[in-house]
Amino acid sequence: MNIFRLAGDMTHLASVLVLLLKIHTIKSCAGVSLKTQELYALVFATRYLDIFTHFISIYNTLMKLIFLGSSFSIVWYMRRHKIVRRSYDKEQDTFRHLFLILPCFLLALVINERFTFKEVMWTFSLYLEAVAILPQLVLLQRTRNIDNLTGQYVFLLGGYRALYILNWIYRYFTEQHFVHWITWISGLVQTLLYADFFYYYFHSWKNNEKLQLPA
């Protein structure tokens, strides 16, 4: 494992911890999109189908369990927890899951490396992950006051994607492996979705202002 991959995974882990910290400690999920969190839960559930049948390393299995566990517990908190669910901006979080899930599923049926159940689900999870942040970005744009933890959560998620691209460039030159168009293109699309957010994040950071996205 190279340094970019490790840094990417740790950034991903940090983003989840920041979100859990906000929800568990402050008992608030204000500004967090339940739609995005449900999509992530679906992404991990469909990607890690082989978690108990295909062993790679203890690190790999442990991280998969963490991402599965955290995504489902965040959804649980936002839907079921007595106090947390009261802070959910239901009226603002209106993005329709199906508009993302259905096209990704159809695309995975058509464009995949092998037409098997596991492979199609794995490809579906890549396409869905690429766009899963959209409801969250829409919600951020609607929220006038983005709190620090929510801003950091999205920033860390975007950082994780950027580091994964560096990881692929590194792997491309150091390992004998063929071109992974599906992974790379969906990963690139996903990272580009953060470009606008990054611009305003750095802008507010540089000027020491509160993060606000233009309407």
Binding site: I56, F67, E175, H177, H180, T183
Partner: peptide, 10 residues
């Protein structure tokens, strides 16, 4: 069949 190496990623 050859498995893609990116399957070891998260």
């Amino acid at each position: 069949s050859q498995e893609s190496t990116t399957k070891d990623e998260l």
